[in-house]
Design a protein around this nucleic acid. Structure first.
Length: 143
DNA sequence: CGTTTGACTACGC
DNA sequence: CGCGTAGCCAAAC
């Protein structure tokens, strides 16, 4: 792993997150799944750590990245629960129409982003990511 | 320089 | 479902 690979990985994370439309959320894992493993990184190993990499990358997200639309695979905000940033994220998402259940969870089958279209993916050299939500294709039920 | 921590997940009970 | 655990590792202490 080189320094430039880290920068490249982060750049790809931001590029992808910028595509998530208001009112939808994605997960660290989904974003990371669209990014190919850097040269020299064992694929299986990469698969186990890429989501965490995406999470770490989000800490350095530029202001123009809609970071609030990235949550964890459980549909929950991953920032420290009582923190200010977590409150802001929750507030911003609700302002976009995202609903949280009683225990602060978002239904990924309803609000999960389906991902960019394949043309966009290939154009940027990214990989298609599996659908969000527990199983099967997600059924967008906005409105 | 050793230890702890954390914007992750999948999996087992 | 909720909760604990095992992988993993860059940063912060």
């Amino acid at each position: 792993m080189q320094e430039k690979d880290v920068a490249s990985f982060r750049a790809q994370v931001y590029l992808i997150v910028r595509q998530v439309p208001p009112g939808r959320v994605t997960t660290y894992g989904q974003v990371a799944a669209m990014i190919a493993a850097p040269a020299g990184v064992d694929p299986p190993k990469y698969q186990r750590i890429r989501a965490q990499w995406a999470g770490r990358a989000m800490r350095h997200a530029p202001a123009d990245v809609p970071w609030q639309r990235v949550i964890n695979s459980q549909g929950r905000i991953s920032l420290p629960a009582a923190s200010r940033p977590a409150a802001i994220q929750h507030m911003r998402l609700e302002a976009e129409g995202i609903e949280f259940d009683r225990v602060g969870r978002v239904d990924l089958r309803r609000f999960g982003w389906l991902g960019p279209d394949s043309a966009w993916l290939t154009k940027h050299g990214l990989l298609p990511a599996p659908p969000l939500g527990k199983s099967g294709p997600t059924q967008p039920t906005l409105f």
